[in-house]
């Protein structure tokens, strides 16, 4: 089983520390989501992993070997700042980029045809990049990233510029690559996609890791302060609690509501009280997990 491991990685640019003591691990067959606000240091960390920048301190290993020129052939990198040669034909460009990754020419040609078909742009292979729409260029860039069978795939905002249908198509391919045992690093601001795809997350802000680990565990670590109720009957009790400030309605309908519990209100106490209410039939009493978006906003806000 392969893995990418960063240990206490620090990178400074003059007086600015872009990454400070970053330690993280990404395993094959899993997707690690690299999250953080703009200017958090994600791109610096990614460039260090891709061996574009060298860390001032710490180490980066891919399958237990220090990254270097050798590891560049083992990784595919889709940078946030997209770039292709405008005046070169799609297939020539893809072949060149695959060859730079060490892929033999003929194999590259076969793979190019396969991926162009798979992404529905097979008719555009002989056209110059400048003739393609932004979405199509994005697909070409994605193909360039995964073409040479990289063990480590780094995707920085892979869904930007794509419509929902193509986003879904890319999601399927990424999931498939994960099943094939690749190590995948996904940096995105699209929390819904990250939540859907990632197994682990690492949240960075101001060059430091604020939060990391298995996504489900991270969610569990966060206090469940939201409660979903479904019922029939009168619930004057809740109105009284709201007046006292113990709870706060977030959503309300005829047969249910979503509540925010204040610090002094324990869910078990509330349930006991509700069960004592005459004529109330309770169908659902669920402590809701926080969404990744909420975790992101809360963590970054607190920092």
């Amino acid at each position: 089983m392969g893995s990418l491991v960063l240990r206490d990685v620090t990178k400074r640019f003059g007086q600015i520390t872009a990454a400070s003591d970053i330690s993280l691990r990404a395993d094959s067959g899993r997707i690690l989501g690299l999250l953080g606000p703009n200017g958090a240091g994600k791109t610096t960390v990614i460039r260090i992993i891709a061996n574009i920048l060298t860390a001032d301190e710490g180490s980066v290993t891919l399958n237990e070997h220090e990254v270097g020129a050798w590891s560049q052939e083992q990784m595919g990198y889709l940078p946030e700042e997209r770039g292709l040669y405008k005046k070169i034909k799609v297939q020539d460009q893809l072949r060149y980029l695959a060859q730079l990754k060490g892929m033999p020419r003929m194999e590259a040609m076969d793979q190019i045809q396969y991926w162009l078909d798979r992404l529905g742009i097979e008719k555009w292979g002989a056209r110059k990049v400048q003739d393609l729409s932004k979405g199509m260029q994005q697909k070409v860039q994605f193909i360039a990233t995964i073409l040479a069978h990289p063990k480590l795939i780094i995707l920085d905002e892979p869904f930007s510029g794509l419509d929902p249908v193509n986003s879904e198509l890319l999601c399927d391919i990424i999931a498939e690559l994960k099943e094939n045992g690749r190590i995948i690093l996904l940096a995105s601001h699209r929390m819904d996609q990250v939540e859907k795809l990632c197994d682990d997350i690492c949240l960075i802000a101001k060059g430091k890791i604020l939060l990391s680990g298995d996504l489900r565990e991270v969610k569990r670590r966060f206090k469940r302060e939201k409660l979903a109720l479904e019922y029939t009957g009168s619930l004057r009790l809740l109105d009284e609690l709201e007046k006292k400030g113990t709870i706060q309605y977030l959503e309300r309908s005829e047969d249910g509501c979503i509540l925010h519990l204040s610090d002094g209100c324990h869910p078990r106490d509330l349930l006991e009280q509700l069960l004592l209410v005459d004529g109330l039939e309770l169908f659902r009493f669920e402590l809701l997990q926080p969404t990744l978006n909420e975790i992101f906003i809360q963590t970054v806000g607190d920092s």
Binding site: G83, L97, L100, K101
Partner: peptide, 16 residues
Amino acid sequence: EERSTRVVEIIVSSVR
């Protein structure tokens, strides 16, 4: 040209 089209980042992720 490589800088302005941003293609350089992909290239330097493959070569020194």
